[in-house]
Simulated assay, not measured.
Amino acid sequence: MFTLSHVVPLLADMQTADSSGATTSSTIGGIIGYILFVAAVWPFLKKAGQPGWTALIPVVAAFFIVRAAGLSAWWTLLYLVPIVNIVFAIIVALRLGRAFGHGALFSVILLWLFSLIGYFIISYSRDTHDHARI
Rank of each mutant, 00 (worst) to 15 (best):
A62V: 08
G29A: 09
F88S: 11
G101V: 10
G33F: 10
F114P: 00
V81D: 05
L105Q: 08
L71K: 15
L113A: 15
A89S: 15
G52L: 01
G33R: 07
I117T: 12
V38F: 10
L56N: 00
L80E: 05
L78G: 07
I83C: 10
G33A: 14
G49D: 06
W75A: 13
F114A: 08
I122H: 13
L96M: 12
S72P: 11
L71C: 12
L56G: 06
A73V: 08
Y124W: 12
G30T: 02
L116F: 09
G52P: 09
L36M: 12
W53K: 06
W112H: 14
L45N: 05
Y79G: 12
F114L: 12
L116M: 11
V41Q: 07
F114Q: 00
I90D: 03
A55M: 00
W75N: 12
A104N: 14
P82N: 12
I57Q: 01
F63G: 01
Q50N: 03
G49K: 05
F64H: 13
L110W: 15
G49V: 04
A73W: 11
I32M: 04
A68I: 07
L96W: 03
S26Y: 11
Y119N: 14
S26T: 14
H102T: 11
I121V: 15
T76N: 05
I57P: 01
I121D: 13
I117Q: 05
P51C: 00
R98P: 05
G70R: 14
I109P: 13
W53I: 13
Q50K: 10
G49L: 07
G52N: 08
L80K: 13
N85Q: 11
I91G: 04
V81T: 10
T27K: 08
L110P: 07
L110A: 09
I32E: 01
A48S: 12
G29P: 02
A73E: 05
A55L: 01
A39T: 01
A62H: 04
L96Y: 03
G97N: 14
I90K: 05
V41H: 06
K46M: 08
F114Y: 05
L105S: 09
A99T: 12
L78Q: 10
N85A: 10
V87P: 03
A93C: 14
L110E: 06
F100T: 02
A73Q: 09
L94W: 08
I32C: 03
L111F: 15
G101C: 08
V87K: 01
G33M: 09
R67W: 06
I32Q: 02
W75T: 11
V108I: 15
S123H: 14
V81A: 05
V81F: 08
G30V: 05
L56F: 09
L111Y: 15
A40W: 04
F106S: 07
W112P: 02
W74F: 14
A48F: 01
I109F: 15
A69Q: 08
W42M: 10
L116K: 03
P58Y: 01
H102F: 15
F100E: 02
I117K: 11
N85T: 07
L116S: 03
I90V: 15
